[in-house]
Amino acid sequence: MSQAGAPRITAFVCNWCTYAGADLAGTSRLQYAPEVRIVKLPCTGRISPLFILKAFEGGADAVLVSGCHPGDCHYTSGNYHARRRWGLLRKLLDLTGIDSRRLQFSWISAAEGQKFADLINDLTAKVREAGPFAGANPARKRLAPAPEEAQGPRRES
């Protein structure tokens, strides 16, 4: 949350469902919170864990990943592949301090403009409530290590 409490939310969405859903929200003139930055990709199967890490590195307060409902993938199985990856990745990130308030997943079809608008409003409200992530974000880019960081214990299992 760089300026005046505006959270920074990065949304990785697929071209065929969620992006079209967001588009529908727009053409339907639905109002939703403006803090989300959408990154469109061909398919959720294309969303590498590296993208999510990069977003947090760049100072995102939350990341949303969204694509076609199971069974509706334009490429048949991209979302199934992705779901399996995220089932593990979100647990790993949770263990290391990026919990489920900061990393959310959803399925939104091209017909669900209202669901998209509601989700973004809901997510934004939750992230506002959770507060800025900057201080606690383990992935965030800092140019030099903070002095207190240099003192971890030397060795452990």
Partner: peptide, 12 residues
């Protein structure tokens, strides 16, 4: 060998 790269590397 700074925080963000170390985090990303160890996660990946």
């Amino acid at each position: 060998a700074l925080g963000h790269g170390n985090y990303a590397w160890n996660m990946i």
